[in-house]
Amino acid sequence: MEELRSKARELLASGAVQVVIGYGRGSGGHARALFLRDPGRAHELVYDGSCLQNLCVYLLKPEVRRLGKPALVAHAAALRTILQLAAENQLAEGALLALLPGPGGIETLATFAAIEERVAALDHGLGAGEKEELQRQEAMTLEQRRDFWQEQFSRCLKCYACRAACPLCYCTRCTVECNQPQWIPVPAHDLGNLEWNVLRAMHLAGRCVDCGDCGRACPVAIPLHLLNRKLAAVAEESFAFRAGRAAKADNALSTFKPDDPEDFIQ
């Protein structure tokens, strides 16, 4: 932790960056996002097991962008997010420094190539618990799965915390906010909730880097990340593509290839 603090102090004092987006101590001793601009307050930075939020969500927020060049305290999922945002032309090379805390100290990653290399080394796929969670879903019959998700979505308030917490949900105008025509019903009733949640998951298919922040953000504990994880698995099966591994990559669902067998069209 001391090393992270002194790195932040050094980066801010030298002017290499204007803000360090990291974690500070919040309610209940948990971590929360901290925007450090004053090197004299670097002692407020923390890094521990409660630092789960994917801070990349702030990289495109106008208020944060105005603070200047950031160094971002990044865990593995955040590194993948940076690459995916780059692949979608949302981040330019050199726009930020990624600070990766690890057992060997703080690694400073200044280029996409360095992040790609680190992501490849860190990438161990899903954990045993995560695989089991996914298999539980896959083991359900269609009817069971439909009932499961209808029950989950029945609690949805349409507060859009899932959307707001997702670093890859960066549209300045979301489809649910378009009303000429109204694609998605606004009310948080069964149909509106189903359409919203399916749309959110589908829009992230082949783009989601599995940080889990959608599920963590949901105030009514809908395990939204499971939908995205399944779609990521489908994208990998179908296109041999995993999001967030390269800074230059085609998008799995919006790239036209003349040699696409399109064998799903019967």
Partner: peptide
């Protein structure tokens, strides 16, 4: 205000769980 709200993501979770927040939208369906 910018300092207080820098980490706010602009979702509606706070308002929707609040016992006194009364803002609403009108939709025809």
């Amino acid at each position: 205000w910018a300092g207080q709200s820098l980490r706010c993501l602009g979702c509606g979770a706070c308002a929707y769980v609040c016992p006194t927040c009364a803002c609403f939208d009108i939709q025809d369906e």
